[in-house]
Simulated scan of single mutants.
Amino acid sequence: MKRFLVVIALAGVLISCKNTNENKKDANDSVVATTAEEGKAEEVETNYVPIDSDEALVAASLMAAPEASRAGCKVIGYNMAGEFVTFREGDNEFIVLVDDPKKSGFNAACYHKSLEPFMARGRELRAEGKTGPEIFDIREEEAKSGQLDMGKPGATLHIYYGESDLYNPETAEVEGAHYRYVVYLPFATAESTGLPEQPIGANHPWIMNPGTHRAHIMISPLHNDKKK
């Protein structure tokens, strides 16, 4: 009789454990399903809208600047009406050139203020109808003669670019946009820097236009969806 009672007790314990494990499994499955649904909801809720005002244009373009410096950047460029204006003055070392709203996609730049003579000369020559090669040759001659100030060696250009012209008004991020960085070293070469003249792999720095006024280090970070 005692053995019979022990067998019944053990059976009860096994059934209880089985039910507990099944309940835990059901609970875990429920958590996973809930998390997956929440992830889908977050993806759907991202609200990208057209950049259709000067305020939106400035907000999105400021993403080109380092986050800690955005509040003090000078901001210039074409407004929604097609006029080249100063949106605001700044009090730090950066100038932000907003995306041109008349062009497809998105391309905003943030550069060290010592580069402004070089950048302004390029805008002036483009406004005169000069081609890319013509602008290069003119600025090369002017830089070599000392007429054109090329800024401080090592001055940087930050570029925020992408194919979309939609942005998230809550974060100011442009849909699918990425970063690229340029460090200007006028007349530097592969020999003077130790950098290759072609990238040896993704995310590797290299020197472009070596030996010229536009010599610069190119740095193209891997896109977020390609990081390893």
Rank of each mutant, 00 (worst) to 15 (best):
K2L: 15
F4R: 11
L5P: 11
V6E: 08
A11S: 13
G12S: 05
L14T: 03
I15R: 11
I15A: 13
K18Y: 14
N19Y: 13
E22D: 15
D26S: 15
V31L: 08
V32Y: 15
A33G: 09
T34G: 06
T35V: 13
G39C: 14
E42C: 06
E43M: 00
V44P: 05
T46M: 13
T46E: 15
Y48N: 03
V49H: 14
D54E: 12
A56D: 13
V58H: 06
A59Q: 07
A59D: 10
A60H: 01
S61K: 02
L62R: 05
M63T: 02
A68N: 13
A68M: 07
A68W: 13
S69Q: 04
C73Y: 10
K74F: 10
V75N: 00
V75P: 06
I76S: 05
I76D: 05
N79Y: 05
N79P: 07
G82F: 02
E83V: 09
V85A: 04
V85K: 03
F87A: 01
F87M: 00
F87Q: 03
E89D: 15
G90M: 00
G90W: 02
D91C: 04
N92K: 03
F94V: 04
F94L: 12
V98A: 07
K102E: 15
K103P: 12
F106I: 02
N107G: 04
K113N: 00
E124P: 09
L125T: 03
R126E: 15
A127R: 10
A127V: 03
A127K: 12
G129C: 03
K130D: 10
K130E: 14
K130S: 04
G132N: 11
P133L: 03
E134Q: 14
I135P: 01
F136W: 11
D137R: 11
D137W: 08
E141L: 08
E142Q: 14
K144T: 06
G146P: 08
G146Q: 04
L148R: 00
D149Q: 05
M150K: 02
G151C: 09
P153F: 06
P153W: 10
P153R: 10
G154E: 04
T156M: 08
T156L: 00
H158A: 08
H158P: 11
Y160K: 01
Y160T: 02
E163C: 04
N168C: 08
P169T: 07
T171S: 12
A172M: 02
V174E: 12
E175D: 12
G176S: 11
Y179C: 00
V183R: 07
L185F: 07
L185N: 09
T189C: 05
T189R: 00
A190D: 12
E191Y: 07
E191V: 04
S192R: 07
G194K: 00
L195F: 15
L195C: 10
P196W: 09
Q198K: 13
I200S: 11
N203F: 04
I207N: 01
M208W: 10
N209K: 10
G211E: 12
G211A: 06
T212C: 06
H213T: 08
I217K: 05
P221N: 02
L222E: 15
L222A: 09
L222P: 13
H223G: 10
N224Q: 14
K227Y: 12
